[in-house]
Amino acid sequence: MHGYGRTTASLLFLAGLVVMLYALFQALPFGAAPMQVGQEIVSRAPGETGAANIVTAILLGYRGFDTLGEVTILFVAATAAGLILSGAGAGDLPKAPGGFILKAAADLLFPFLVVLGAYIILHGHLTPGGGFQGGAIMAAAFFIPLLASPTSPLNHSTAALVEGFAGTAFIVIGLASLMWGEAFLTPFLGKGTLGDLFSAGSLPLLYLAIGLKVGSELAGLMARIVEVGGKS
């Protein structure tokens, strides 16, 4: 099983896979994919959702359910990582403080990162970006100070609170339409003018919930790994 036999077999498998993928991709018409659904969405999205960024219209409108699943996967991963790490040794290695430059930069960057994250979340329906990207920046804002001074831990309890309420908010927004006899996640509120900050109905609300959830989840997840990771 181990040794040369395994390596040779794996390399043969690899070669086979490359040849197969090459043949397959070669047969695909590049730049001329059928774009059946894509074309229809491009022509209908502005009218149906009011979002100028069509990728956002898909993520929160047409495929909003995927996005709920996506947020859930981060939540599952964070929960599972918490479960796995909860018995780990609490990092015996002395945690070196980050030094002057990192500390000063962390303090300086914090407000800017929070504002930038908030900006990207709130403009997700207009420009590239959105809840995931903005949430990741928010998480970075809280994570960099942790690198700078590892002894002051992240407040996991607050993070969990934000996370729980943001996740609940997403589902409650989705369920709200059920009460009016519509399907789950049907957008509501006025669509506004295409391209305005206050447009696209309930989609920006969803992105806000996603941004908060992703931010608190990623920050909590990375903090946990740092907290126990010092040891190995």
Partner: peptide, 30 residues
């Protein structure tokens, strides 16, 4: 315009990948 659907799918796939890798890192530590 280019097809927006694969872009939305990739966004989802990237986030899923991040979650799985983070969990893998946690397991690796243990």
């Amino acid at each position: 315009m280019v097809d927006p659907l694969p872009q939305a799918l990739v966004l989802t796939a990237i986030v899923i990948g991040v979650g799985v890798l983070a969990l893998a890192a946690a397991l690796l530590i243990r």
